[in-house]
Design a binder for these strands. Structure first.
Lengths: 346, 346
DNA sequence: CTGAAAGCGCTTACAG
DNA sequence: CTGAAAGCGCTTACAG
């Protein structure tokens, strides 16, 4: 039992180690009879390759690193792992998650990256890296793939959301519902990191301007980088307070994430602002709470995005040609109960 | 740049490979001066160990496998990964998720397990394994830890929920609220696998009997193993239909999971059964949707459970002594808006 | 189509 | 405290 090597199989099948190696890996130039005998022997012995030995000899680790800021158990990150797993596991790769919780650890990881021989590719999720780190990625011999990155820069391939088109959809919906004053609500990030979702407020404003909204009818809430990491609840309160005292209060809000939108709606209702009668609220993500909260939102599919990123990784590792290295993924509006026509003026 | 080995560091520091190995791994019997020189050299060269080479030579893979049925992006599983990561990563272990989506793949994995030299321990999550597989686990040289397993059998260590005490809490609450007829709602599993949560209906009935409820005042819904994998929605419908036509309809329900409870509540309300006025509903998990849905529920903390399991794994791998190999974790009732005193009879 | 030999980059006794 | 040597279990040219 256990601890058996390719050599045991070789003896059992009456061939050399090299032949076992070739046969079991499905390489050609092996006599069909021989191969069958070897496969039988391996099966009988319950032989499994030592990945370490294979890797050391071949120079391929058969591992793909998924780099996260923040927990594995967030909606986006857990979906990213799932999607990556679905395409990488069948290809024989292990996926290994790596969290860099703060700037110091991130710096240290990137410091060591050029010498890192423990992974065949890196999928970098939702990071906003500075120029220096992006250049470092670009100079790496191993492929790096950006998932939900801010831009394509520095990555060998990337999969990103089309934030502009998403925000344009939202603004068009609000315009068709007759809303004249719009707000965008940024979520305070508890992290030191800036995520790609921070791009949305800019996209939102730009889209609204395209749709003939004037600057005076557009407002961005919650983007206070002044006082540091506020709690989620405090941030909600702060936005609601601003809204309550707003002389030109918007009648519709786009919120950076579903989570924040749902908390915001609860607080608004608590203060007598009805949703959607007085205020339309649109979330972003269509994560698991959106249907529960009956939230109108912009749907994205992080599992599929991760599948795409993983397929890019596979192609890069195999040095296959790729039609598109940088993929922009579309979103879709999901209409639910938190959006309605604008209240009549007064 | 890159591709450098321990030998390069040895040359740079003017010592032998073995000394570099010892120094960089923090072993004793190295002259402080020599060690400093080596560490400097390693730093300067951006040297990183090849985990494959280390593993092959030492016989330790520095990898821990997390075995899942179902997706990585479920609430419980993603929390389990997070908790395991938190304790295993600082110890130098990679965590590698492995999904066995169906019985066939699970069988194949277990078939190969005895010859598997690619992991130092296995954490088995939420599985209900048959006797044969449990025996196989018991015979393995590498440690196996059950997380949310049905029982302790076959595992070297385990971390489980105290389902009995959880159900007793729920029943006591319902009794104190004056509910005379209680129901337990099982969730149809889309999987071939039976999860540990399936034990709860038995615990519930037993607890209620302990609290002097008669068998005729207790009812279990949705446990139809007859017609195969029903959809989530169909299952909700079926439970509601049974409730509507029930001549002795319970006034309180314990539901196997929060997800199912929330869907059930929506359907009940749609059919005019008010929650909590007409019907008290208690969920299980206290997952992310529970606060959003204002759901009274039984709280569990899978991240912490996974941390405990991972610590057990570390101790087992290090052959340290353990005070308790099998840990039973408590739950707590979270009172929210879906529970209320029983409606007056009539 | 098959085998002998070298080598992947470490760790681990064993001397000294 | 340090170094030379063997070995971990494979893969990969290279002969044949």
């Amino acid at each position: 039992m256990g601890r058996l090597t390719i050599h045991d199989v070789a003896i059992e099948a009456g061939v050399s180690d090299s032949t076992v190696s070739r046969a079991l890996r499905g390489l050609d130039r092996v006599n069909p009879h021989t191969r069958a005998r070897i496969e039988d022997a391996a099966e009988r012995l319950h032989f499994t390759f030592s990945r370490n030995a294979s890797s050391l000899a071949s120079g391929r680790t058969m591992r793909v690193t998924l780099l996260f800021a923040g927990g594995i158990n967030t909606w986006f990150n857990s979906c990213a792992m799932q999607g990556a797993y679905e395409v990488l596991a069948p290809e024989g790769y292990d996926i290994v998650p790596l969290i860099t919780p703060d700037q110091a650890e991130q710096d240290r990881y990137f410091e060591m990256l050029p010498g890192n021989r423990n992974t065949d590719a890196i999928i970098v999720t939702s990071f906003d890296l500075d120029k220096q780190k992006l250049e470092l990625l670009g100079g790496l011999t191993m492929p790096t793939i950006g998932l939900d990155s801010r831009s394509d820069d520095g990555y060998d391939a990337s999969v990103r959301l089309d934030e502009n088109s998403a925000m344009l959809d939202a603004v068009r919906l609000l315009r068709s519902l007759g809303h004249h004053r719009l707000g965008y609500v940024e979520q305070p990030s508890s992290h030191e990191f800036k995520f790609s979702s921070k791009l949305r407020s800019q996209s939102f404003i730009a889209s609204a301007r395209t749709c003939d909204y004037g600057q005076e009818d557009l407002e961005v809430f919650g983007g206070g980088h002044d006082s540091m990491p506020r709690s989620f609840d405090d941030a909600v309160s702060s936005v609601v307070a601003t809204l309550l005292s707003d002389s030109r209060r918007p009648t519709a809000l786009c919120v950076e994430t579903d989570d924040f939108a749902v908390a915001l709606i609860a607080r608004l209702r608590h203060f007598g602002i009805r949703v959607p009668e007085d205020m339309t609220v649109i979330g972003f993500d269509d994560s698991r709470i959106a249907p529960v909260a009956d939230l109108t939102t912009i749907h994205q599919d992080p599992v599929e995005m991760a599948r795409l990123a993983a397929r890019q990784a596979v192609k890069l590792m195999k040095h296959e040609t790729m039609d598109r290295r940088h993929i922009l993924v579309g979103t879709s509006m999901i209409l639910r109960g938190t959006s309605a026509p604008a209240p009549s003026e007064g």
